[in-house]
């Protein structure tokens, strides 16, 4: 494959999904350099989306007692404590990336996962039958099965709020504007300006993550400004949508199927017929 089919490469996802005249693609720019780790986003998301509580978890990992994005945590604030060069804290509010090429959506066998007119990726809870395929397909470990419920759950980028012109609950609640919501084009420009500013202010380690439409998932609808390598925050350094390789996988399966047929034909061909055996 040359990487330019609609299974990979840069494109605008809503028209690709069949919306003839969609509104601009909407997304998040999460600027971790101003995150104060207050977790207002986690709480606002839970309240608005009626996401169940997980009980009291004390993980012993810094101030992070959420641990990861799960079926019951659609925003997750990571806390990294570092002693290099001086002590510093990295804080980052993680979320579903609303990938341009979303593996979860590609592999969903029921059509529960769908692309919205805003270019975001949403699970329809009345369709999902909990087959679980989207869960290991996501290169960021976002989707998860809810215990006792059986279905898969993740961030909807507040599809209900965005549909009526409102801001998603997390971005609304963020007191430092670490989480910014808006048309993706604008957010990408704003992020470039912010990076330039930080570099000229002496923060050379600042870098964008998920902003590049040329990356392995065609760019993220929710992208980030980070202050260290992605894996330090628990993010994959170079994610690729698994379905990019799917045409090659089907071809290998086709060859294997021919091998199977050949093996069976060879096993029967030339065997003496049973009647003539003693």
């Amino acid at each position: 494959m040359d990487g330019t089919t609609s299974l990979s490469g840069p494109l605008d996802p809503a028209p690709d999904a069949g919306y003839p005249d969609p509104p601009p693609r909407m997304g998040f720019f999460t600027d971790t350099s101003v995150c104060i780790g207050c977790k207002a986003c986690e709480v606002a998301c839970k309240e608005w989306n009626e996401v169940p509580a997980t009980g009291l978890d004390l993980l012993g990992t810094s101030f992070d007692n959420t641990g990861a994005l799960t079926a019951n945590s659609w925003r997750h604030v990571a806390f990294v404590e570092q002693r290099r060069p001086d002590f510093r804290w990295l804080m980052m509010s993680d979320v579903c990336k609303h990938c341009t090429h979303a593996a979860c959506l590609d592999v969903c066998p029921t059509g529960a996962l769908f692309r919205t007119e805003f270019g975001t990726v949403v699970i329809q809870e009345d369709i999902c039958n909990g087959c679980g395929y989207c869960i290991p397909a996501c290169p960021y470990g976002v989707v998860d099965q809810r215990e006792g419920d059986g279905r898969a759950w993740k961030c909807t980028l507040c599809y209900d709020r965005v549909g009526v012109g409102k801001t998603p609950a997390c971005a609304q609640a963020c007191p430092t504007e670490s989480i910014q919501f808006g048309p993706l084009d604008e957010l990408r420009e704003r992020a470039e300006r912010r990076i330039e500013r930080l570099h000229s202010d002496g923060v050379p380690e600042a870098r964008l993550y998920g902003h590049d439409p040329g990356d392995g998932v065609g760019g993220d609808g929710a992208f980030f400004l980070l202050l260290d390598e992605p894996e330090v925050y628990g993010l994959p350094p170079d994610p690729v949508v698994t379905t990019r390789d799917l045409p090659r996988m089907w071809r290998r399966a086709g060859l294997a199927a021919l091998t199977v047929v050949a093996a069976v034909a060879a096993a029967f061909a030339g065997c003496s017929s049973p009647g003539r055996r003693s």
Partner: peptide, 24 residues
């Protein structure tokens, strides 16, 4: 409590980056 994660460490507290399949 826990040791600070060194800069450039390969993971976030050793947690998985992706979710393992939930199939039994």
């Amino acid at each position: 409590m826990s040791e600070p994660a060194p800069s450039g460490s390969a993971s976030y507290y050793g947690r998985p980056v992706i979710k393992a399949p939930v199939w039994g």
